[in-house]
Simulated scan of single mutants.
Amino acid sequence: MIIVLLILSVLIGVFLGKFFGDREKFAKNLLIVSAGFLITICLNEVFPEVYAGEDQNIGLWVIGGVLLQMLLENLTKGFEHGHFHHHTEGKHILPLALMIGLFIHAFLEGIPLANEEVVLTPYLTGILVHNIPISFILGAFLVKNKKFSPSAFLIISIFALASPLGLILGKYFNPNLEVYFLALVGGIFLHISSVIIFESNKNHNVDWRKIGYVMLGVLLAMSTHLFHQH
């Protein structure tokens, strides 16, 4: 069921991007809501679980996640937080570096789900909410005349299967390592959500619209947290 939800979240985002991809403002708003959701899940769910263990150096893995995401952004060029450009010279080819960066990102997210018994945990919900705007941008990037080429379908399939593959392979890892992967992903999430939320506003004025969308994401995440507790 978890694998189905992971794939479905990507497909929903991609097809939204296919039909509404020209609305970049809509994509930005989705990203801001997802950032509010993601940073709340990090601080309320992921980090308490990570720091509940006995390893006093676990914070280094969180920092490692932040640094890893900074390196991945050399490949993705900020694709995860809405920095994308439409096609060059009419070509609709996703750069190989971008594909690799997105795959690694999604693959790592799937590993902490390997031994998950509850379906809709806050962590999984965070991934699903995060997947939709990224997939929206991916769909908008790949579509041509409201259609996807065979190569576009291949790229979408690779991205959709990255997290499920991480989940499946994660079952073969030592369960004691799960907390370290969770810390690593927590650092990745922290970096992505922080960049989206704290990106400079025009003339450094207060952007009430952005604050509103962040608060919406926070409220949705808190609702997920409370639902999970019950």
Rank of each mutant, 00 (worst) to 15 (best):
I197P: 00
S157I: 13
L169V: 13
A160V: 04
Y172R: 09
P164C: 13
I156V: 12
K202M: 10
N205Y: 14
I155L: 11
I188V: 12
H191Y: 12
G186P: 07
L190F: 08
I155R: 04
H204S: 15
N174H: 07
G187V: 02
F153Y: 15
F153V: 14
K202G: 05
S194I: 03
N174L: 09
Y172S: 10
A160P: 00
F198H: 10
L184A: 00
E178W: 02
H191I: 06
L182A: 01
I156M: 08
K202C: 01
L190Y: 02
L167D: 01
R209S: 10
I155K: 03
H204P: 03
L182C: 12
S200Q: 10
F181Q: 05
I192L: 11
I192M: 11
H204E: 14
A160S: 13
I197V: 12
L184S: 00
G166V: 07
L182R: 06
I158S: 04
I156H: 02
N205G: 12
F159S: 06
H204W: 15
I188K: 00
R209F: 13
I158F: 01
K202P: 05
S163I: 05
F153G: 11
S163Y: 00
I156G: 00
Y172I: 08
G186L: 08
L169R: 09
H204L: 15
A162L: 05
I158K: 01
I196L: 12
Y180D: 00
G186T: 08
V179T: 14
L169S: 11
V195L: 06
S200M: 10
P175R: 09
I192T: 01
F189G: 04
L190H: 00
R209I: 14
L184W: 02
L161H: 07
V179Y: 03
G166A: 01
I168L: 12
G166K: 04
K171N: 10
F198C: 05
K202D: 14
N203K: 14
S157C: 11
G186C: 08
L190I: 07
